[in-house]
Nucleic acid binder design. Structure first.
Length: 127
DNA sequence: CGCTTGACCGGAA
DNA sequence: ATTCCGGCCAAGC
């Protein structure tokens, strides 16, 4: 279906922004992850959503309000998607304490898993 | 009117 | 590890 935008861009974007606003300081999410976490938009086939959802998330970020921590959304490779302004994004993330190695973020350690399991210590007790 | 280009992703070469 | 490609729309030049 639509490559450029979902059936109801405005509604979809708001869902994206709502989710991104919940990403904690010092954590990141990927475009694809955000798309996957949101409900399947009406009138869209799952296969189509899988193919274009991530791009729509990108569109949403390009038009996000000021109160959305847009810098915490990066691509599936842990890198900042190339575009004018990428430097600024990296600066903001580093300022949050997120280290970059070879221009990449260690998603294993810094990816936010979603509401519910915030950032519990992996294994606090070691008897 | 035709060609280029997108804040993407996963698999193939 | 890196580059290319399909997916297949639409606005801008």
């Amino acid at each position: 279906m639509n490559y450029t935008s979902p059936p109801n861009p405005q509604a979809f974007y708001e869902q994206v922004w709502h989710l991104v606003r919940q990403v904690p300081h010092g954590k990141v999410v990927t475009y694809g992850q955000v798309a996957q976490m949101l409900p399947l938009p009406g009138g869209i086939e799952p296969q189509e959503y899988k193919a274009f959802g991530p791009r729509w998330v990108g569109e949403a970020m390009a038009a996000c309000p000021d109160d959305v921590p847009w810098q915490r959304v990066i691509n599936s490779q842990g890198k900042i998607s190339p575009r004018p302004g990428a430097d600024r994004q990296r600066q903001l993330l580093e300022a949050e304490g997120i280290p970059f190695v070879k221009d990449k973020v260690n998603l294993k350690a810094y990816q936010w898993r979603g509401p519910g399991h915030e950032d519990e210590p992996r294994q606090a007790r070691l008897f």
